[in-house]
Each structure stands twice: as C-alpha cells, then as structure tokens.
C-alpha cells in the first residue's frame, strides 16, 4: 500500500488518459516518416570518411551554393515576415469586397506545383516578360540572377507567414489597444508596444516555416535561377548534379550539411520564440 502511494505521488497525474499509447504512436509515426529517412541520409554520407566529407562540403562551389541557398532563404523569409504581416492584418482587420477570395488566393503558392510557379515567374520576369521588360530600362535583372531566386522563394513562402499570423491577429483583444489609446499611447506606440509583442511568437514561427521551406526549394528555383556556377547555383541543384554522377555519398554529404545548418537555425528560432514568450508572458 505504501509503495503504491509513493508511486502515485511520484507519477504526476494527467488530465487526459492514454499518454503512453499516444506517445508511442507519435514516436513510431515520427520515426517512420522523419527520423528513419533522415538517418539514412547520415548513414550514406558516413561511407565517405571525415577527410573526404570535409573536402566535398568545403569546395568553393558548394560553399557558394550553400551561402546562396541560406542567404536567399533568409532574405525571402524576412520579406515574407514583413509583408505577410501586412497581408494578414488587412485580411483580419478590414472587411472589403472579395475578401474571402483574396484570402483563398494566399494559399495558391501551397497548391501550385513548384515547377509551374517557377515557369510562370520566369515568364514574367524574363527580359521579354511583362515585368522583366518593364524593369530592363531601369537596369534591374531578375530572372537568371540571385534576385530571381529570392522572388521565387518569397512566392512559395508567403502562405506560411500569413496563415500563422491570421489566427493570432483574430484573437487579439481590441480592447487592449483601446485601453492603450485612452492611456495616451500614440498609434505607433500601440503598434510597437502592444500589438507587435503579442505577434512576435507567431511571426517567428511563420518566419521559420517560410525559411525552412525556402532552403530546400528546388522545383521553382531551377527555372528562374540561371544556375550559373558560383553565382546563381543553389545547394539542392548541386545535390542533383552529384546524383547525376551516381555520387550518392557526395550528394548526401551536401544534404547532411544542409540538414545540420537548418536544424541549428530552427533550434535557434525556437529558443528565441521561448524567450519572447517568457518575456511577454504570452499565451
């Protein structure tokens, strides 16, 4: 009896039953879907040996492509965080004709096959396309430059930010803003001191999702990038190039570096999110 009581005391009581079963299910599901395929990538690259691995991933062309992939993804995710907030704000705070339709359009980059997006964007931004022709006299080239890559990555990342911000914006209590205003806060102060802190965690999540999606993007970028070595060649393309040579180990070496970099960045963003949450005592 005493033992049983002690056990009960040690084991925290859970409100929901079935913790063991659902955890088991979650772990199995995650393993099958994520962990096992990803560990296969690591195991395949192990065959290289450290020296060879290092030689592959520090080759100037690989380094340049990694810098481009991660740099362009960060820029695109930042653009999305900013303008995604604007889009979400307008969709939540105002009513206007065709709002539902515009709301649905936000999801299109999700649904569209990425190759179609790439071809469409290239057609638009190529020197003979509508936008490309208009930008040409200004000396701005988009298609077949790193700028084109950023455009494509911004396109595919937009829904992630909008869709994570929307529910948070909807739940935001308008009375808090009104209270701030009656206490003498200016519109800017209300936005910066009241609204933004509440939105930070969701914005970070949206940013992280858009970034993660952009780093690995292949289909749409290939058409608009121009794929010039050292200039507009993304890391996933180098992986494909290695595979074309049946160099599986070399391909997985680059993949491992991308995985580790992405995972580190995700962890960092998560930590930042926890920090903002605890600081603002948010939801």
């Amino acid at each position: 009896m005493i033992g049983a009581v002690a056990l009960e005391a040690r084991k925290p009581r859970r409100v929901l039953p079935g913790f063991e079963m659902t955890l088991g299910y979650t772990m199995t599901y995650l393993s099958l879907l994520v962990l096992i395929p990803l560990s296969a990538v690591f195991i395949r690259s192990l065959g290289l040996g450290w020296g060879h691995f290092w030689e592959i991933v520090t080759a100037p062309r690989v380094v340049a492509s990694l810098r481009l992939s991660f740099g362009a993804a960060l820029i695109a995710a930042s653009i999305n965080a900013l303008f995604g907030l604007l889009v979400a704000w307008v969709l939540v705070r105002y009513t206007f004709p065709f709002r539902r339709l515009i709301d649905a359009i936000v999801d299109l980059p999700f649904a569209l096959p990425t190759a179609v997006a790439g071809i469409a964007l290239t057609a638009l931004y190529a020197p003979n396309g509508w936008l490309g022709a208009a930008l040409k006299p200004l000396g701005i080239k988009v298609a077949y430059t790193p700028l084109g890559i950023i455009v494509a990555l911004t396109f595919i990342g937009l829904p992630f930010v909008v869709r994570t911000l929307q529910p948070v914006l909807e739940e935001l209590d308008k009375e808090v803003e009104q209270a701030a205003a009656t206490l003498g806060a200016s519109a800017v102060q209300v936005f910066v001191l009241v609204i933004l802190p509440a939105l930070w965690p969701a914005m970070l999540t949206g940013f992280a999702l858009a970034f993660a999606r952009a780093v690995g993007e292949y289909g749409s970028v290939i058409f608009i990038a121009g794929n010039m070595p050292m200039k507009s060649e993304i890391a996933p393309l180098l992986i494909v190039a290695k595979l074309e040579q049946y160099d599986y180990a070399g391909a997985t070496a680059i993949a491992v570096v991308m995985l580790v970099l992405s995972f580190t960045l995700m962890l960092g963003i998560n930590a930042l999110q926890n920090w903002t949450l605890s600081r603002h005592g948010g939801r």
Binding site: I119, T122, A123, A126, P127, N128, G129, A143, Y144, I222, F223, G226, N227, M228, P229, L237, V240
Partner: peptide, 20 residues
C-alpha cells in the same frame, strides 16, 4: 552561356519561349 538550365527541356523553353 548566360543560363545553364538543368535539362534540355528547360533550355529549349529559355531559347524559344523566353527569347534568350
């Protein structure tokens, strides 16, 4: 060579459709 497409189809599109 201003653009290195990943496949022959891509190059044909670049030349024929994009006029490059």
């Amino acid at each position: 060579v201003p653009v290195l497409d990943s496949g022959a189809r891509g190059s044909t599109v670049t030349f024929v459709e994009r006029g490059i």
